[in-house]
Structure formats: C-alpha cells, structure tokens
Design a protein around this nucleic acid. Structure first.
Lengths: 335, 335
DNA sequence: CTGAAAGCGCTAACAA
DNA sequence: TTGTTAGCGCTTTCAG
C-alpha cells in the first residue's frame, strides 16, 4: 500500500541513495555485485522513482500537451496515436487538451506549461489568426499539426492542402464535370483556405467559377446537409461537389438523397480526410487520405527535438493520396 | 522567459517565502498590507507556483487518470467531458489513457499511479474478468464508469442495463414482434451480459427464444453488418433486431438494405446509447439514451470523495430513457 | 567504486 | 502577524 522511496531501497540494499540513483539512471559506475543487490531491493519493494522529486531536481516534467479541437472526429484519433507512441518512446507522457474552443479551458491548459507540469505542446487546432499559439511558442517548445497559424516561423507538419485540392479539382474536370460546387467551412483553418484556393485556381484555368457554400466551423454533418442543400437547390445545380471534409461529404450525400438525386449517377461527391466513416456508408466516399499517424509522429518528433534544443521552427509536408471509390463518376451525358 | 520561484517573489516583496506561501494558499493570517505587496510582486514577476515542489511537499499530484477503450466512439466524449469538468472544478487535471486494450500501454499508465504522477483513476473499460482494476483498486482510489468488473466492492456508476434491455424487449413485443433477434458482442463487458439477460428474460416469459448473433469486441460497424446479416439470412428471419449499441444497429440497417429489406417496414432495429450518429442517418434510430455527462460527473465525484478519504466502494445507478424514432414499427401483418 | 551532502520549490510546524 | 527551518524524493557534485 505505502509507496517506497529511494531511501527505502538504499536501506534494504545496504547502500547509499546515491548508489541506488546510479543504478536507476545507468550513469556513474557501479560494481556488478552492488547493482545486483540494488536491483533485487527494487524488485522486492516494488520501487518506482517518484516523478515529482525527479522533476523538481531535473527541471523537466516529461509531459507533453496535445491540443485537439474535439476527439469524436476519427480524423484525430490516428494523429493522437502517432503522437502518443512517439512521446512514449521518448519517455514522455501526453495530456490531451480537448475542446480548445472553450477559452477558459485553454487558458487552464496553458498554465500547465507555466507551472512546469508540461514541457511543450502540440497544437492540432491552430487557427490562422490564433494569438494563443504564437504566444505559447514565444515561451515554450511548440509544434503545430494539420493546421497552422499565420506566423510561419512556428514549426508545423501537414499535407500540402493546396495541391491536394488541385488534384481533386482536376479529377472532377477529367470526369467531364463543368458545374462544380465547393462546400467549405466558416472556420479560420489554413487547410480550409488552401483547399478552396487550390480548387478555385484549377477551375479558373478552365474558365469555371465554382459554386460555393459554407458549413459551420465544426464540420458538422447537419451543416453539411444544409450547405450542400443550398447548392443543390440552385437551378444551375452542380453535378459534382468537392467537400473539405468527409463528414461534410456524408452530409452532402444526404442532401442529395433528400432531393431524389442519386450519387454518383446524378451527383459526384468527393470528401477529404478518409476517415473510417468514408467506407461505412453507401456509397463509399471518394476522398483524399492523409497520413495521420505519421503526421502525429512527425509532429511529436519535431517537438522532442525542440525540447532538446536541437532545432527551431521548421515546416514539414507529408504526402497525401486521392482514394477513388463509389461516390464519384463521369458526368452523365444529357440525353 | 526564465520562470520565477517563490523566493524571487519573497525577495521582490521584501517578505519571507512562508508569507508568500500563505498568500498563495489563503491559509495563515497575513495583514492586508503585506498581502498587497506580495500580490503585486506575484503579478510583476508573473509567478506561478511550481507544481513539482508543491506536489512533492504535499504528496499529491492533483492528476486523475481516465481509462477509455477508444475515443472515437462518441459515446465516450460526453462521459469524458463530465469527468473533466468535475475534476477541474475540484482543481484536478485529467489524463486520458486511450486504448486500454493494449497491455503495454495500460501497464505504463498504471505506473503513473505508482510513481506519484496521478492520485486516482476512472476506468471506463473494466471487463467483467478484469484483473487490472481490482489490482489498482487495492492500492489506489478507483472508480468504474459504464462498465464494471465482477468485484462488487469497487465503486461504479452506470445505468441499470438489465432493466433497460427489458424495456426494449417489452417494447418489441408490444409492437407485435415474435421473431426477435439479438445482436450482442463477444466482449466481456457487464453491460453486454446484462442487456442480453434482460432481453432473454422478458422474451422467455412470452415463450420466445431470441435468435442471437455476436459482433466483435469493439462494436465495429462492419461486424454489426456481419452479425445482423447472419440473422437476416435465416429462413426464420427475425422481424425485429435489438442491437446492444448504436453502431451495431447502423450496421444492422446496412445489412437489411443489402438484402432489400426496408427499415422499419420489413425490419425493426433498435440500438443502444443514443450517440450522435443515431440521428445522422436515415432512418433515425430508436435507441436507449444514457445520461453520459452526468455519468462522468458522478464517477468523478465518487473518485474525488475517495481520494479525500470520505468514502469507500459504492454503486450508483443513473436513469436511462428509451427514445422512439424511425427505425422501429409495428410488425407488418402477413397478407 | 561508493557515500555524504547540497539543493531543486514548496509547505507547515514551530518560534518569535 | 511574520520569519526560520526541516524535509518531501531525487540527482549530482565532491570527497574518499
């Protein structure tokens, strides 16, 4: 029941605490024999070094913060897994800070950096106009994942959203679509902006202006239904829809169904992220997949390096991939 | 950039560290004048008490562990929110331990209790035959939420799964169904067992033996499709399906679609949990809702009480509610 | 190779 | 009302 300390171990092994410490940390020379004694004392007492004493002494918490807008969207699950595995491999623990939108919570989480409970942070929710991230980055090791703020000097890992969006737009053109809709979002994420820019740029070259509608900040299913609905109710209704997230794309399919439109026969729908949902429902979604786990890994590696003082801000871009499935098809020829 | 300590503040304010400590912790008497001096010194130096020193001294970490099987299932999101809000209100932080299934991770998380990084744990993933939970409970404050292990002496908060399942079964009978299927799971959760027992008990009284099939441990959508499919392929095919989770119910609907069966006209499907999905797709799911946020609150309150030494193991049951929507209907009369 | 001892930042007796 | 001081558990010089 009572947890044992380093001095308990020292007493049990008949050595000094310094020696025990040396054994635990594998630094300093210790004879085979004493090491053996110490190890068995440790086993016997089920000793675990108390982290507070260690942290106090070493001046590090071995704890990382991970800011994530929400945790329900499966998109984040793999990123988080990548971060956590990498952290653990470097002997760091991670603390998930969910719902960065709520100001109070955010502030409280950030305090953890100030009072020494955490050594650095990964932000997965950096808005373009974020003040919080630059402020934190000025004082502590910080890395951004997926999204990043306007201050380019702060490290970030993401895919190249712009060229991914260009690929999607080109694909839609290649299917013969000319009336193309874009379902974006009102949030201030850089991915939102870049996907829109990429899409517009390609279509502009083909002299096409996309019809645009915007879902809520949180990519909610229902706001996807609404936004796509706006587009589908126009008389110059699009024959293809590029949605900046899979959840939105699922909403778009629902909006189509409600209007008696078949996907993909009457309407092509393309999503983004390739979350689990994408294959769960009919038709399975054509979408862009991101290397989420690797993104988490890369972000965490960058952070650890920064904590070790080995490097400052960097940008890393990871490869994406278009996944062709059932929700997209060649434009039906008017008969 | 350099973080200031309590002695910096003391020096700045021209008082002793003890006085500063008194001001911070609002204990011990301090004159208005000195308090003022100390406070302005704190502001000036942007001082935050270092948590390591404090924890080391007080012998508490003010950190709680939350073990959750996964984080993608929206069922957990609200429970977690309830736990976190309650924890924060009591000046505790929480650390999410995701994926208790992976043995290694679990062990590493449990170490946090031993080495003093956490003061207690909420388990949302206690299997009936869990060894880990009783072991942890023997040494540390522990509470279980939703699920609980066979050792009844360990605190837990949940709904009364058995009577909820009875209600569902009675509802199905009241709709005129006589061929009733049960889609369970191969996991070892007590909720799984109790829902099955409740269903069987009611049907037995009506001299009906449910047709049963079992999805994977993780309630995955695809395993729901498979399990429900088994039942629907029988020649004595059920006209109603009770699924122990909403995701499974969604899978059942998909299986029905694949066989050209309409829900609810040809097949009634009832889920469990009332997650967000339940209303996202057509038909909207008839299901049983759980007071998730409150469940999280209650579990955390119990844990905090236990940490304070105010109470040992208790069981708390929260009310559930059947939600009638579009996926259930009176049995079609054979014509 | 091993031990003694200082000190990380903080709180809580105990003195004054 | 305030200050002095011991000590929480640990690491790390510095001696031996």
């Amino acid at each position: 029941m009572t947890v044992s300390t380093i001095s308990d171990v020292a007493r049990e092994a008949g050595v000094s605490v310094a020696t025990v410490s040396r054994v635990i940390n594998r630094n300093g020379a210790v004879s085979r024999a004493t090491e053996e004694k110490v190890r068995s004392a440790i086993d016997k007492l089920d000793y675990q070094p108390n982290v507070w004493g260690r942290s106090l002494r070493r001046g590090e918490s071995r704890m990382l913060l991970v800011f994530v807008p929400n945790v329900t969207n499966p998109y984040y699950a793999n990123i988080i897994a990548g971060i956590e595995d990498t952290a653990r491999a470097g002997f760091y623990n991670t603390m998930l800070c969910i719902g960065g939108g709520v100001q109070v919570r955010r502030a409280e989480y950030l305090e953890l950096l100030h009072n020494g409970r955490a050594d650095g942070a990964v932000f997965l929710d950096a808005a373009l106009d974020s003040k919080v991230v630059p402020a934190a980055a000025a004082e502590f090791p910080v890395v951004q994942g997926s999204e990043y703020c306007a201050d380019e000097s702060i490290s970030h890992v993401s895919i190249d959203n712009r060229s991914a969006a260009e690929e999607v737009a080109e694909y839609l053109l290649s299917l013969g679509h000319r009336q193309i809709g874009f379902v974006g979002s009102t949030n201030h994420f850089i991915s939102t902006r870049q996907r829109r820019e990429g899409c517009e740029a390609v279509l502009r070259r083909a002299d096409i202006k996309p019809l645009e509608a915007f879902a809520d900040k949180d990519y909610s299913f229902l706001s996807g239904v609404r936004a796509a609905g706006e587009l589908l109710d126009r008389k110059d209704r699009p024959t293809a829809l590029f949605c900046i997230s899979d959840v939105l794309a699922l909403g778009a399919i629902r909006a189509a169904e409600e209007r008696g439109l078949r996907v993909p026969e009457d309407l092509t729908v393309v999503g983004f992220d390739d979350v689990e949902y994408a294959t769960m429902f009919r038709p399975m979604l054509t979408t862009v997949s991101q290397p989420c786990y690797e993104l988490g890994q890369a972000a965490c590696e960058l952070l650890l390096r920064q904590i070790r003082g080995e490097g400052a801000g960097t940008a890393r871009f990871l490869p994406h991939k278009m996944i062709l499935r059932d929700s997209s098809a060649r434009r039906a020829v008017e008969s």
